[in-house]
Design a binder for these strands. Structure first.
Lengths: 388, 388
DNA sequence: TCACTTTACGTTAGCGCTAACTTAGGCAAC
DNA sequence: GTTGCCTAAGTTAGCGCTAACGTAAAGTGA
């Protein structure tokens, strides 16, 4: 048995200290208050005077104190585990998505685990598997965010969930989206403003609600501009590159082909570029093509795609925050729909509509946002002779 | 909903029990041993009899006991924080990489945090920033795995690191790779086996050590087959799509153009496909093209790319495991080089060489040094064998 | 046989933090 | 004044686990 003084020493510089990092006790001593008060300050709890709060804050800064999350969740007995459920690990947005969620999870002292969901498994089995893993909340990126069977199963198991980039909020869960309809409308208006009138639309898979919204935005912009809607200009894809290729080929095979194609995601837009090249069309001189999402694919094509940027990382951060809040609060689950801003990123794949283009460019040069207009024109004019 | 269970958490002695989950104490009681013994069993520690171990194991299974990681790292005062350092959040491999590391980190009770490194910051500032965040070990995916300045700075700060998919192990850190040279050799042999003799190579950025190895593998396969090496068939890229396009255009502009192009990654291979189409060449009838990495880009082109699959998730898992081990062990850092198997994935972008070289096949069939060629013909792809 | 090591456990004491309670002082109302 | 009630703290008691040490029994060697 250690003597009293030895014991005291042990407590401070004990055999098991991690070495680095001050503790609440250190801060408390330095600020001349109790550990509990420090804890209250750190967590923004009530019942602390303004002066004390200041002293403690200074001590925290001076010692570089960072709370130990392990101790925290032990003491609180509340270790929130959030699952990121994905169906397709190679989806382009997933890495950015993961980075955002991981940051938010770390910040709110929750634990992020990644779970895969593959078709052979039933939604019900999935949900109970998640429960067994002690998951409290689930993050649903596309395409899972629109899978009603999965959502129903999760809700049945009492799991909280947040749907990312879905078109249809509601269904008892948080939703974090951009305004898909407005974005599509902006992009279509952008094309119309450049003189395009026959604008092909490669729509997404109809079981993704975002597809519908993007299509609606397209129609809205046409109607805004008084351009008649032509159903023949809608080709349906399923967000894969391959489907985009087929859709684009159909559009380009039309008797009166469009002068622009707006694809519902970048993969399909990139495929449209490939299809255009196959047909001997120059992009954007003969055909403008725009995408949606601003994934890596947008810059893996030539010319690079003008597209809509979704703030994926911010969206996942927001979703994690919402989930953690809900789980910690407990009962009063009031589900939110957070809508973040999108951005129209202009690159080189769009330009003036063919008929008037040469004149227009001389008279009214393309806005020099990135000087791509001229460069794209000259670059793509070189070489590139082909015929199928 | 959760309303029912939340209410009565006072069930046990403590007023603060989080509802779900057995504890060591529960298991101990059920098995009739002490908590410490349970802990020893769980951690595979020594000093436990076989009979006791069995009893405890049964109790664990019966109660569905899962250790609480928070309590664990608190008690052990060893909360290993591993940083995944990345330079480019949209890199195609990153999501798979993250999934693997996250799984491994969770399994070994380490904490994974993601840190970005952007050029304006100096390597030294980066390293000290990591220290401030209490990072103990760093995961270095490409291209950071070959950044000597960064590596030196990390080493100076006493951080352990693991380099993924680098070509040059050593430099005081773990390395997890595939055998890039053997993989490139296998791919080249695969092309040779199909009658190709003029095989263009789009090399990677020379400051990536993997680039050199892949080039070496290409040369080795040529030499294996007795095909003369022609420096004109090497075009240098930097792993971006755009650079691949330029490189491919140069190769296809050659007076005697190659009948196959082997690109050092999928992005460049996809660009080569685009370039071929631009020139009116059919892939694979007129030109075979193969890639490397098997990222999403490999299936976002038509035809889909025959490529080398790297087990990215497995690699990141292995790296995390190595790092955790090293950090836990403490000093005796013995750095390992783990080399995992690659796989040649055959899709639609490669085929027999055009007519005239078919004669070559009949006259002098290629003698694959280790049976790469023959095995690789099978559609499902084959496991790569290590080289002597 | 006894001293000595080894093996197989049990005991104690925290890791750092916070929920829940307790206490000290202030301030109003009766 | 004193009762009551508020606010701003401090105190106590763990959360679940394991490092370090304690101890009893079995094995070892002379």
């Amino acid at each position: 048995m250690a003597t009293l003084s030895e014991h005291w020493q042990t407590q401070r510089h004990g055999r098991r200290r991690g070495g680095s990092g001050a503790t609440v006790a250190d801060v408390a001593r330095s600020a001349g208050v109790s550990a509990m008060t420090v804890s209250r300050v750190v967590n923004g709890g009530p019942g602390v005077g303004e002066a004390t709060r200041g002293k403690v804050g200074q001590a925290i800064a001076a010692l570089g104190y960072v709370p130990n999350p392990a101790a925290r969740s032990l003491a609180g007995a509340r270790q929130v585990r959030i699952a990121l459920l994905h169906a397709n690990p190679s989806a382009a947005y997933l890495s950015e998505f993961l980075i955002g969620s991981l940051a938010a999870a770390t910040a709110s002292d929750a634990m992020l685990v990644v779970e895969q969901y593959d078709p052979p498994e039933t939604p019900r089995a999935l949900a109970s598997r998640l429960r067994k893993h002690r998951i409290a909340a689930v993050l649903l990126p596309p395409p899972l965010c629109d899978d009603e069977a999965v959502i129903a199963a999760l809700a049945d198991e009492g799991l909280v969930f947040a749907r990312i980039a879905t078109g249809a909020p509601g269904m008892g869960g948080h939703a974090v989206t951009i305004d898909d309809c407005a974005a599509a409308r902006a992009m279509t208006a952008h094309l119309i403003a450049q003189g395009h009138r026959r604008i092909g639309m490669i729509a997404g898979n109809p079981n993704q609600t975002a597809s519908g919204l993007r299509l609606a935005g397209y129609k809205a912009a046409l109607s805004d501009a008084g351009v008649a809607f032509d159903p023949a200009l809608i080709a349906e894809g399923d967000f894969t590159w391959r489907s985009g290729l087929l859709a684009a080929e159909r559009l380009l095979g039309l008797p009166q082909r469009p002068s622009a194609i707006f694809a519902s995601n970048d993969d399909m837009a990139a495929a449209a570029v490939a299809a255009a090249h196959r047909c001997g069309l120059d992009v954007p001189r003969d055909l403008s093509i725009t995408g949606f999402d601003d994934t890596a694919m947008a810059t893996a094509t030539w010319p690079e795609l003008t597209t809509i940027r979704q703030p994926v990382a911010a969206m996942s951060r927001a979703a994690v925050r919402l989930l953690v809040q809900t789980v910690r609060k407990g009962e009063d689950a009031e589900f939110q729909h957070e809508r973040l801003d999108f951005e129209l990123v202009r690159r080189g794949s769009d330009g003036q509509a063919p008929q008037h283009s040469a004149v227009d460019i001389l008279v009214r040069p393309v806005e020099p946002s990135e000087g791509h207009g001229a460069a794209a024109q000259s670059d793509s004019g070189t070489n590139g002779r082909e015929n199928p």
